[in-house]
Simulated assay, not measured.
Amino acid sequence: MVSGLAGLTAILVCAAYAQTSGVTFHNTVTGETLNFDDALPEGRDTDGVKKFMQTGANPYNEDPSCLKKGEQIFLSACSGCHGHLGEGKIGPGLNDDYWTYPENETDVGLFSTIFGGAKASMGPQYQNLKLDEMLLVMAWVRHLYKDDVKHATWLTEAQKTAYKPYKHDETFPDNSPGLCAGK
């Protein structure tokens, strides 16, 4: 019973943030407002999800403590279609300036596509990935970006200044400080 109550609390927290933040999430294909009630109950009330629901900016972008986790989730859940480096296979490439859905240039747009799905084989991921895992995957996808950083609208100006393109042999320590440390 406690887990049911915890799940309900998490749903209410997520819905409250989405409603009061001014950030609106729409299905990439239909334009309908996304319903977070269907999302997995775990991973809804992390600090990262709370910040994202309030601001629409992924707080995990370029956070070294989050990138290793994002990479691991991406490799197991996304690389089969999008390639190990986001170069595209069955699904479109994710590491360059071209977005099949232009709204994916924003964090809200990319999150909405992951959560609610898109055309062709990209089904909704709300029953496969926790909301927090979606943000981790997004941070990894953004880190794989290989084109001109001036087009990386998801990065802050400070992040653009410090940005270094992904290198294929790049690794991240398990104990990097940041928002995902200790998870």
Rank of each mutant, 00 (worst) to 15 (best):
V2R: 07
G7Y: 09
L8Q: 10
C14I: 11
A15V: 12
A18W: 01
V23G: 02
H26T: 14
E32I: 13
L34I: 15
D38N: 15
L40C: 09
R44I: 11
G48H: 08
G48F: 04
G48K: 03
K50Y: 06
K51I: 14
Q54T: 13
G56T: 04
N61R: 04
P64F: 10
P64Q: 09
P64G: 09
G70C: 08
E71Q: 15
S76L: 08
C78F: 05
G86Q: 00
G88S: 00
K89W: 05
G91A: 09
G91M: 07
N95R: 03
Y101K: 07
E103G: 04
E105I: 10
V108D: 06
G109C: 02
F115H: 10
G116N: 06
A118H: 07
K119A: 11
P124Q: 11
L131I: 10
L131R: 06
L136H: 01
M138W: 02
M138R: 00
D147V: 08
H151R: 14
E157T: 12
A158N: 09
K167N: 07
H168Y: 04
D169E: 13
P173A: 15
N175I: 03
S176E: 14
P177S: 14
G178I: 03
G178P: 02
G178N: 06
C180W: 05
G182T: 10
G182Y: 07
G182H: 08
